[in-house]
Structure formats: structure tokens, C-alpha cells
């Protein structure tokens, strides 16, 4: 079974919000120095799902990432968890790619890798949380996709997929090849073994540019108009009353005035 996993390197979601700066003129987020980027957590779930499928059914897992040179670390983490090969698409032309452009590049990269049975992505990336790339990618490749996925079973050439819905999940049958966007409910990503880490460190990651992949340049579909930190203002109003009961009654009255209840 040939599996392709798409991963994105993101700013560590544990970074305190207060440490971010926004350059409004350049419309860019300036991450704090000294906090290394990390693998998008949902992508780690996709990696884990791929490794589990490989353990059950055999096969080969190729990891693809579009990003800067630092994204090599994200690929190496996937290798250390049990993936087999890595491809980094590093091209300054795509530094600020939107979801459509990203899907377009990833589609070209996937075609360059060769045959595949399954493509796994994280359901969304924790930096912009747009959740657009997986479906865009499936559309460009002309294969079915399911998101968000909480469980995967393989039976012959068909996948049985648990898809999360509002108050539970539904089970879908999907023919392969297909693309699944994995959610955190699917699994708990493993800690890589230290031996795996040492091997991943020594492994070579292929690096290609857009030109190497023969990507047709496509324009942005999304224009970022303004990037800013919203000002949150809060005010405190003390609710008084002689007794706790009276305070509660006054609070309820006030909340009703504000149409909160």
C-alpha cells in the first residue's frame, strides 16, 4: 500500500499569544524568536494513521511538505515515526501561497512521486485553520476525499472511514485511491523511537523547486486585505444586592436586559 502524507510545519501552538507580533504593513505574523516551529498537530495524526496502516498492511509512506528549509525538520519527524521517504518543496515563489496554490503544488509533487493508494492530510493547519488544502488537493487529483476522519480501516481496495459529524460519526466506504483528512480523534501520535530519530537524521530528504516539478503557476484565489490583532475590550459591572438571593436575581435581570438569557 503506497501512502502519501502531506505535512505542514507551523508555529508551535503552545507559543503564548502575547508573544506574537503582527506587522500590519507587511501583513505578516512575526513569530517570537527562540521557539522552534513544529509539525502541525493534525498532520502528526495523519502520520500516525499512515504508520499504523503500514504496520497492518505493509507498504511505503512518502511525506511531502511545502515550506521553507526548516520544514525539513517536520519531514524528519515523520521519518523518525516510521515514514520511508521525504520530499520538501522549497521555493520562495510559494512562501505566501494560499490554499489553492498550495494544493496545486502538492498535486504536482504527488504526481511526481508516482502511484499511490491513499493520501493522508491533517484536517486543517493550526496556523490559519482554513481546512481548504485537503479537499482542493483531492479535487485537483480527481479522487474522492473525506474530512474530518476519526478512523480508517482497509478492506481490499476499499476504505471504511469514520467521519466525524456534529453528534457522532458516520461510516463511509470509499474506493482507493482516496484522500482522507485526519482529525485528532483518530489516534495519539507516537513518540518516535530514538533509533528512529538517529536514522531520520541521517536520511536524505529530496528538495525540489516548483520548476523541478513543472508546476503551472496559478494565481492566488484569496487576497489578504488586512492582518491585525483585534482589540478586545472588557468592562466589569458589579451586581449588588443585600442578600445572595437578591444579587442572583439582579444578575438574572441584568443578563436578560442584555439578552444573554
Amino acid at each position: 500500500m503506497n501512502i502519501i502524507v502531506c505535512v505542514k510545519q507551523v508555529q508551535d501552538p503552545e507559543t503564548p499569544a502575547s508573544q506574537f507580533r503582527v506587522d500590519e504593513a507587511a501583513k505578516k505574523v512575526i513569530p517570537p524568536p527562540g521557539i522552534p516551529p513544529t509539525v502541525n498537530q493534525y498532520d502528526a495524526n495523519a502520520i500516525e494513521a499512515a504508520v499504523q496502516l503500514k504496520e497492518q498492511h505493509g507498504g511505503r509512506i512518502t511525506v511531502i511538505s511545502l515550506g521553507k528549509d526548516t520544514a525539513r525538520d517536520a519531514i524528519k519527524q515523520a521519518l523518525s515515526m516510521g515514514c520511508d521517504a521525504g520530499l520538501l518543496i522549497d521555493d520562495p515563489a510559494f512562501e505566501d501561497a494560499d490554499a489553492y496554490q498550495t494544493a496545486n503544488v502538492l498535486a504536482a509533487a504527488i504526481k511526481s512521486v508516482g502511484d499511490y493508494d491513499l493520501i493522508l492530510c491533517g484536517r486543517q493547519a493550526s496556523d490559519w485553520d482554513q481546512a481548504q488544502v485537503p479537499q482542493g488537493l483531492a479535487e485537483l487529483l480527481g479522487i474522492p476525499s473525506v474530512t474530518p476522519v476519526a478512523g480508517i480501516e482497509v478492506t481490499g481496495t476499499t476504505l471504511r472511514v469514520k467521519r466525524l459529524i456534529e453528534d457522532g460519526y458516520e461510516v463511509l466506504e470509499v474506493p482507493m485511491p482516496a484522500l482522507l483528512a485526519v482529525s485528532n480523534e483518530a489516534n495519539q501520535p507516537r513518540y518516535p523511537t530514538l533509533k528512529g530519530i538517529m536514522a531520520a537524521a541521517r536520511a536524505k530528504v529530496d528538495v525540489k523547486s516548483a520548476a523541478d516539478l513543472g508546476v503551472n503557476a496559478v494565481g492566488r484565489k484569496v487576497q489578504l486585505l488586512r492582518l491585525y490583532v483585534p482589540k478586545v475590550e472588557s468592562q466589569i459591572e458589579w451586581i449588588t444586592g443585600e442578600t445572595p438571593e437578591e444579587q442572583a436575581a439582579n444578575l438574572a435581570r441584568r443578563l436578560r436586559e442584555e439578552r444573554v438569557i
Binding site: K76, S80, M198, A201
Partner: peptide, 15 residues
Amino acid sequence: FPEEIQLLRRSVRDY
């Protein structure tokens, strides 16, 4: 440091 030691450090720190 060689890359393997850097990755090792990161992994142990995560753990």
C-alpha cells in the same frame, strides 16, 4: 552539533 544530536535533543525535550 550534528543533525542527529539536534533532533535527539528536540525529541527528548518533547518527551
